[in-house]
Design a protein around this nucleic acid. Sequence first.
DNA 1: AACGTTTGCAACCGCCAAACA
DNA 2: TTGTTTGGCGGTTGCAAACGT
Length: 407
Amino acid sequence: MGRSPCCDKVGLKKGPWTPEEDQKLLAYIEEHGHGSWRALPAKAGLQRCGKSCRLRWTNYLRPDIKRGKFCVQEEQTIIQLHALLGNRWSAIATHLPKRTDNEIKNYWNTHLKKRLAKMGIDPVTHKPKTDAILSTDGQSKNAANLSHMAQWESARLEAEARLVRQSKLRSNSFQNDPDQFSLLPSSPPPNKPPSMVPVPQGPPRCLDILKAWNGAWSNSNELAAGTSAGGPGAGAAPVTGLGGESPTSTLSYSENAPQMSSNGIGDNSTTLIEFVGGNSSGSCEGTTGNTKEEGDQEDWKGMNNSVSFTSGLQDVTWTSADPDHRHHDVPSGGGNFVERFTDLLLSSNSGDRSFCEGCGESDHNGDVSGSGGAAAGPGSDYLEDNKNYWNSILNLVNSSPSDSPMF
DNA sequence: AACGTTTGCAACCGCCAAACA
DNA sequence: TTGTTTGGCGGTTGCAAACGT
């Protein structure tokens, strides 16, 4: 049966909190911890339901909350993480420790989503919405788009693997260091990791992009010898066999590629995602079928990723393999990634930017206004910007340290 | 100045999954 | 094993402030 509403009792107050209520809640939690939220209101003398108290505490009263405008760097992080994780605000919030998921969600909905849309980027998929005007060849367009999706999917899977691993790691560290909870006397027990979407265990997932790829081509082409290519990949859609059928580009995963999200990172191996125009081949092998689990988190530190992208329209290889630049808050990468991304981000927006006291970022607005943004530029600019956009997302993954709260 | 519209944000709602009895 | 409780999450709403006409 379904549960009864938590606020079914009559007489419970709803709506905005008064300063007096805030004071009561704050005083009670500081003294006793929140304990059972359901029981808290009565003990604290509040005519509120426990759920309302919890929300008020976590979203507003908690002492470790940073309020005010988001700085550019925070915006970047949100966008990048959203590209990787979607609307998993709590997971995103773990990467912005002083921001609440609710605040991030609001900021996304009111600011960032619109800004991306302005840039011609679908805020849901983080894919360009204006491909149609850039290519007269629909298949070419699709291939390029799928290439982006492949990068995205790879990065996302990697991030999720890290996410789970880190949550477990944190769980262990919390057990060893319960003082971390001193602010919240009765916070969730140390052995309770942050709530995160679990990454499926067992056979690694096949890249969704490969399924999409299959779907895109299976209508017109008979897939040859593809049914067994997935190996232990749990129903992985085979890609092998597409060879030569794509007019412009292909997915070509080295055997290391699937390991990026599942195995084999630890030996400083280079993970390679390669998109080679002209010939289609690919695999979605699950390799050993082992999802990386706890105990090998150190593996990520030595990860050395190289992403090659080659298509009919683009031919570039970029690498983010500098382990010395894996700072917690500052995504790094080849060249001045932050500036490039920021320029890209801001070029479509003339809105207010804020100085970030926390990270010391000055206003990045510069003189980029009026450029019309990435989507408005000529095709080559558009592609370059789009490439940078995805590059930045990949860099975020690559640059996030293993001790990041996110990864 | 008055009115209508848009924006930003706090709070609520319903669902889900883990914990518990 | 099953049903219930609880906490957490993401989506949505309501309202006040800001803005435009």
